[in-house]
Design a binder for these strands. Structure first.
Lengths: 362, 362
DNA sequence: TTGTAAGCGTTATCAG
DNA sequence: CTGATAACGCTTACAA
């Protein structure tokens, strides 16, 4: 089976058109530098030969790839099914397409994110969900590739886009407290840790999980309530885990009438598990999610959740990155907050009377 | 603001180590060809200098990019939020990571998929959801890049991975018919058409939408039932549209006790809309989806649907592509079917008595 | 075992 | 306004 006929090169066109390679290049990239005549002739010949500039050769010569990398802390296998990631990515893609940039996904290929970054041919990188003390983040700094952090806070001179997780979480907790709930449980996600750093079971100080938890805690404390360690279940943001976490909380004997989940995915999983155990939502249990993925309005009951627009986050992140890539702009690092607000839907309601007497299981 | 210090090149390392460029290259790519001593020395020097081979230069020299492109018929903006696409992509990513390939997403950049393909630097392409008469598919054929079709049937000498849509759809329809339903409505997705080809409102003969519809029809006909054109709503596979389509069917005055949706996303959207209009599922209405995305088990009631594993499809597609990329293998084109089966869950039940008398609205 | 040199296909520099 | 010619950074025959 023959390999396809060799691809036409710029040299072929130049020869056929009786001009230099440079002229052919100009005919496409700076037509104004050539006489209209030559341009037309060269383009004709090129079209006839089916000539297409080789993108790789072009990258090498221009020293830029017109590609941005999306850096994920976990394998893509795990990231792509996540609706939050999907929405975020859609935002990035939308802005990237507009600017003519292609997207490349970079995950810790064979263990090392750092290596993956170096092996990728990208002009810049958007790192999503890497927490600040992630060892790999140092590598990407060192690599010299411009980057923007999403959902993570880095050094002051690094661009990032975040939401005010703590305040948002506080609002979520405040909402159920106002509804009279006093027994609150939490499903938290610990950010993924590199295997070698699994010394502590709890996340570091600066990551999303910690910030949201701090917000929940602040509201709980402000209401004079307690929150026992047992009332918190940890795990990855997956439907399946949301369900498991719910069952685990029940199995632990925790009493709760309100459940705060750090993502809608977790919340929806928990919702399912609650239904399976014949808990009524919101009569027996109020659930609050986080993210407001599209799906949140489509489950039953529609999910009360903290709205943040992952799509906007993505778009913003890409624009910031573009700013850093553009050598003509000043490219100052920027820290952008995306607004959040609590969307009250059907999954939360007044605390059930009969349970209200039970309290203080701290 | 200084641009980062110039990246170290292979020449820098060669000079510093007192060897030739070739030696440095060998030290990393074919260490067995050098004495263990020199390899060690070169690597030390390289590490000290922080040398990393430029991936683009390497691509040019090797004439391969170790990247596969994923070709989508619509902008990524629209694709990424789709859970089906997410799962499919996860499968592709999983197999790609294993094989050391990076992923690049190619969407019709500024209208032209063809151009996008040419501008992408990939060794091969997985085209998802392009229907066979898609004009762009000719372009990709002509470009000479090896490719695999997913959810589409091309020429006999082209690899593809599909499911038996017609049989699967027939099973879905058969299921509700067995449950006694006689009034059936359908939410179908027309594959996206290029703007210029919007001559016909109905899809061509070979695409998914047509195949599934044929399956539904076959079951309906076999049961001696009718299916009026009005009982079919068309549109893109989005939650939002599923809801809209349901409302439209109702508004049209169609009577139906069973709803067949061509995707779970559409089904879930319809489910929501039905709830909002106080239809009980499955008491008043049975709904069957298609795909069995993870979410299908998490909605309420859990969705009866045609199970197919988009993840497997993705993995399979990538492996087929790898086969075509590997020059050492024979690389024969293969046509792979992924198995489907009907998952009966809570969204379907016996036809409501009181509606059974009403029939034949063909 | 190691070095030399010829590509790879563009773009960019700089004379003509 | 054109067109040689030199990068770009690496791989890989082929020599030594």
């Amino acid at each position: 089976m023959h390999q396809t006929a060799r691809r036409r090169t710029i040299a072929d066109v130049a020869r056929a058109a009786g001009v230099s390679k440079a002229a052919v290049s100009f005919a496409f990239n700076s037509p104004e530098r050539l006489s209209a005549d030559t341009v037309a002739r060269i383009r004709d010949v090129a079209a006839e030969l089916g000539y297409r500039a080789d993108p790789v050769a072009r990258m090498l010569a221009q020293r830029r790839t017109m590609t941005v990398g999306i850096l994920t802390p976990q394998s893509l296998d795990l990231m792509f099914p996540d609706p939050y990631f999907g929405a975020l990515t859609a935002g990035i893609a939308s802005a990237a397409e507009e600017a003519g940039y292609a997207l490349q996904f970079i995950s810790p290929l064979h263990g090392s994110l750092a290596r993956a970054v170096h092996e990728a041919s990208v002009d810049g990188v958007i790192a999503v969900g890497l927490w600040p003390d992630h060892s790999e983040i140092g590598e990407i700094r060192r690599s010299g590739v411009p980057f923007v952090l999403v959902d993570a806070i880095g050094f002051a001179n690094e661009s990032n886009v975040t939401v005010d997780d703590e305040t948002a979480a506080e609002a979520a907790a405040g909402h159920v407290i106002e509804l009279g709930h006093r027994d609150i449980a939490i499903i938290a996600f610990a950010p993924p840790r590199p295997e070698d750093a699994s010394d502590s079971d709890q996340p570091g100080a600066g990551d999303i999980s910690a910030r949201r938890l701090a917000g929940y805690r602040r509201a709980v404390r402000a209401a004079g309530l307690g929150l026992s360690q047992d009332a918190i279940a940890w795990g990855p943001s997956e439907f399946e885990h949301g369900a498991r976490a719910f069952r685990e909380l029940v199995a632990r004997g925790i009493r709760f009438t309100a459940l705060l989940a750090m993502s809608d995915v977790l919340a929806i999983g928990a919702l399912r598990a609650a239904r399976d155990l014949d808990w009524r939502v919101p009569e027996d249990l109020s659930i609050v999610g986080f993210d407001d993925i599209e799906l949140a309005s489509y489950v039953d009951p529609p999910l009360t959740t903290v709205h943040q627009s992952p799509r906007d986050k993505g778009e913003t992140a890409l624009r910031l990155l573009l700013g850093r890539l553009d050598r003509s702009s000043d490219g100052r690092p920027e820290h952008r907050h995306v607004e959040t607000c609590l969307k009250v839907r059907g999954s939360t309601g007044p605390a059930p009377r009969e349970r209200q007497e039970v309290a203080r299981d701290e």
